[in-house]
Simulated assay, not measured.
Amino acid sequence: AGSALAVDRDLFSGGVTRALENHPNITIVRERVDTLPTEGLTIVATGPLTAAGLASSIGTATGKDALAFFDAIAPIVYRDSVDMDIAWMASRWDKVGPIGDGKDYINCPMDKDQYHAFVQGLVDGDKTEFKDWEKDTPYFEGCMPIEVMAERGPETLRFGPMKGVGLDNPRTGRWPYAVVQLRQDNALGTLWNMVGFQTKLKHAAQVELFRTIPGLEKAEFARLGGLHRNSFIRSPELLDQQLRLKSAPHIRFAGQITGCEGYVESAAIGLIAARFAAAELAGRDLAPPPPDTALGALLGHITGGADAASYQPMNVNFGLFPPLAEDVRKKDRKLGYTARAGASLAEWMKHADGVAA
């Protein structure tokens, strides 16, 4: 997906499932668990939609109410339903990603009148209503519904996910006033995700409004946008550096329920939780990954680096990394962080592989 890190979610999840099912040391039991075990090493990775019984048990064990936020998903469009006589392929500034060619997004242009009519449609559209007990639940800022952004002001989207800067329309030779971008969502290239278009509009309203987008007049949707409620615990207060529940250290938490956000981040925290547990079972001590690695930085944020009182889900980002020791130009900092992290992780792995093997 150009410069964006993306996977085919079906192939990825299928590959992980097969690896687990075929592993000689793993037994999979598919049944509901309603209470936390009182003994034995346990990793709780129930994800964002933890069932009521187990959520209640977790609340009892932590002495805290589960925190929650709303997470929204964007619609997915069938590639062959996009009108490429209007849309065109390009990446912003023709940027070439690790596996891209500088033409990695489908771009649907809007002029000024089309844009403002679209924004008004978002504001006026029929939306999912919250129950009374849901109304004070915050959104995850990284997945803010597009109509909520539109309500912040008519120009908000044009300087956000719909900005036309750096995208030359080959039919006009100019940047569009606004643009809707679609990013490849599966390996076959048959499904494309509407970038930044997470939404809580009702399905009928989505179809009607999104088909006013130039190039999507006949769009067919493989999935429409939606909203779901995610649960997570106040990890910086409740967990130690090895993801153990301080009040019941035989229990570890991992994945999204810890307050990390994203597929890669959730899998990574699950992996390090498993390594900690394996080392403990073997009677060995495994130090956390260094804080200047992505894994160590995210782990540190979850287990104490964040302010517990205002804790919200977080993707891994360079803001979690400790500053570089040397003075580095701004444009070179990310490369500096990356090089330092690679060296630190390689050194940590030499010890970790022996400890958790």
Rank of each mutant, 00 (worst) to 15 (best):
R30C: 10
A222Q: 08
M144G: 02
D292N: 14
K163L: 05
R183D: 05
G53P: 08
E347A: 15
A273K: 01
P37W: 12
R244V: 01
S344V: 03
I106P: 05
A341S: 13
L295Q: 07
A219T: 01
A187S: 12
D113V: 10
L243M: 13
P289R: 07
W88A: 01
H351M: 14
A277G: 03
D132H: 08
E129R: 13
L238R: 01
I76T: 09
A6T: 14
V179L: 08
L122T: 03
G100R: 10
K330L: 15
L167C: 01
T338D: 12
T293V: 07
Q256M: 08
L5I: 12
I251H: 04
P289D: 05
I26A: 03
A51H: 10
G15A: 05
F210D: 01
A278L: 15
A72D: 03
A178T: 03
K331C: 11
A254M: 00
G196A: 09
P288K: 02
L20T: 02
G296P: 02
A61T: 04
Y263K: 03
G160T: 11
G40D: 07
V44M: 02
S56G: 15
T293E: 07
T27S: 14
E261Q: 12
D327W: 04
H23L: 07
G121A: 06
R340C: 02
L67W: 10
K246P: 00
L243F: 04
D8Q: 06
K218H: 14
I233Q: 03
A178M: 06
G296H: 03
A308I: 08
P145A: 03
A308C: 10
P138D: 02
A339I: 07
I106F: 09
F197M: 14
G342P: 09
A297R: 00
D292V: 01
Y337I: 00
R340F: 06
I99K: 15
P37Q: 08
S266D: 01
P145F: 08
C143Y: 15
S266M: 02
R183S: 06
G102Y: 08
D168N: 09
T137F: 12
G125F: 04
P170W: 07
G40V: 10
A277Q: 11
A150I: 04
Q206A: 04
L298C: 01
G319M: 08
V195H: 11
A282N: 12
L345Y: 15
D83I: 08
